[in-house]
Simulated scan of single mutants.
Amino acid sequence: MQITFNEEEIMIQDTAKQFAEAELKPNAELVEQTSGKALFLENLKKLCELGFMGINIDSQYGGIEAGSVAFSLAITELARGCASTAVTTSVTNMVAEVIQAVGNEEQKRHYLPKICTGEYYAGGFCLTESSAGSDPSAMKTKAVKDGDDYILNGSKIFITSADYAGVFVVWAVTDPDAARGKGISCFLVDSNLAGITIGKPEEKMGQKASSTNEVTFDNCRIPASTLLGMENQGFKIAVTELAGGRIGIASLALGLGLEALDYAKNYIKERKQFGKPLASFQGLQWMLADRYTELEAARLLIMQAATNKDNGVAFATAASMAKVFASEKANDACYTALQLLGGAGYIKEYPLERLVRDVRITTIYEGTSEIQRVIIARDILA
């Protein structure tokens, strides 16, 4: 199999790489702090100007129509500079793709330009609840029809970018008597509506610059026109769009793993012990060889999933394979890189400490590794 990129994909990859090197990497530690939030949001605006919040969105709505392969290449490069920025970009693109895939023309014309041009810093994907994580069909949030409106009540947790998202895609039960997963609908909810409370940002282990919050809906009145797709058919939307999101997280993990290995490789070429560079020891060479081989395999899995998606071929299982393999091997790569640095890798002065913290969540969000294996096995045994 030969993977070649077209001119636009190469340009997007190069642009993302340059932006990561110039704007993200030098400030990755700063944006984790409260004082760096303004800079973090400023970088999101810049990415909007570059077209990175609508990579797979039609140009008539402000996107650049570059496809899923370009999206993957961009997220990988951005993650090498700042995983928090990369995950915000990935989730916002996913929100935009949900609206483009399922929304009516009025919804697309109203929301997509605001996402693509940066009028909204980000979009929020409100699915997870305290009792409905790996099993979102168990959600308790309800939307009750009231005339020409719905009344929304419930709470969502671990919502990326909730602090500064302009719109939420929200899933809620609209038919409590329906079979499990069958009575769920999807809505577009403006974040500034009365009845919405955004909780304080969670104190996370990694990806700290990306805000993660609880979102509570207390008798939040939303027009019936905000219904996304058909009533009681929303669960299918979640399942479909999460598959696309997994390409993004796999790509993010790949970027973190590559960044960690590249740093460690350069370190052991310069660091000497027993009178010679660490890179001359076969044991360390083999550690690098194994990790780079695994990440190259991950890259190929990601490209397969992204290519399938671009070609309109079934890609959900390929995306799950890419996500579970890339995220787990990226964790291995980051921990190996830290080991190669020895004690220095454990110190905040070196980037490995942050990369290790940032990579850990990739095996958890957008569906845990265990859930990916369930999806893959289900398809194999079907």
Score class of each variant (00 low, 15 high):
2 Q>W: 08
3 I>N: 08
3 I>A: 06
4 T>A: 11
8 E>G: 02
9 E>Y: 03
19 F>S: 00
22 A>D: 12
26 P>I: 09
28 A>W: 01
29 E>A: 14
34 T>C: 10
37 K>T: 13
37 K>Y: 13
38 A>P: 06
41 L>F: 10
43 N>K: 12
46 K>E: 11
50 L>E: 07
52 F>P: 02
56 N>M: 08
58 D>K: 15
58 D>P: 01
58 D>L: 14
66 A>N: 02
69 V>M: 05
71 F>C: 01
76 T>E: 04
81 G>E: 00
82 C>L: 10
83 A>R: 01
89 T>R: 01
92 T>W: 01
94 M>A: 09
95 V>C: 10
97 E>H: 08
108 K>G: 08
111 Y>E: 07
111 Y>Q: 05
114 K>I: 10
122 A>Q: 03
129 E>T: 08
131 S>G: 11
132 A>K: 06
135 D>E: 12
139 M>N: 02
140 K>P: 03
142 K>W: 02
144 V>G: 04
145 K>L: 11
152 L>T: 01
155 S>N: 10
157 I>F: 05
160 T>Q: 08
161 S>C: 14
167 V>C: 11
169 V>P: 02
173 V>I: 15
174 T>A: 09
177 D>E: 15
178 A>F: 08
189 V>D: 00
192 N>Q: 13
194 A>I: 08
197 T>S: 15
205 M>T: 14
207 Q>G: 07
207 Q>D: 10
210 S>Q: 13
210 S>I: 06
210 S>K: 04
213 N>A: 12
215 V>Q: 00
220 C>H: 00
225 S>N: 11
230 M>H: 10
230 M>D: 13
231 E>L: 11
232 N>L: 09
234 G>M: 07
239 V>M: 11
239 V>Y: 07
240 T>R: 13
244 G>W: 02
245 G>E: 06
248 G>V: 00
251 S>D: 02
252 L>A: 04
252 L>F: 05
254 L>W: 02
259 E>S: 13
261 L>C: 09
261 L>Y: 06
263 Y>E: 07
263 Y>S: 05
266 N>T: 09
268 I>T: 06
270 E>Y: 06
274 F>V: 08
275 G>Q: 07
276 K>D: 06
278 L>G: 01
279 A>K: 02
279 A>D: 07
284 L>K: 10
288 L>S: 06
293 T>P: 04
296 E>K: 09
300 L>Q: 14
302 I>N: 01
303 M>A: 04
306 A>D: 04
313 V>N: 11
319 A>T: 02
323 K>F: 04
325 F>W: 08
329 K>H: 14
331 N>P: 02
335 Y>S: 09
337 A>K: 05
341 L>P: 05
343 G>M: 14
346 Y>T: 15
347 I>C: 14
347 I>L: 15
349 E>R: 14
349 E>G: 15
352 L>V: 05
353 E>S: 13
354 R>Y: 04
359 V>D: 00
364 I>M: 11
365 Y>M: 09
365 Y>G: 01
368 T>I: 07
369 S>T: 12
371 I>W: 10
373 R>F: 12
375 I>C: 05
375 I>P: 03
377 A>P: 02
379 D>C: 10
382 A>K: 15
382 A>N: 14
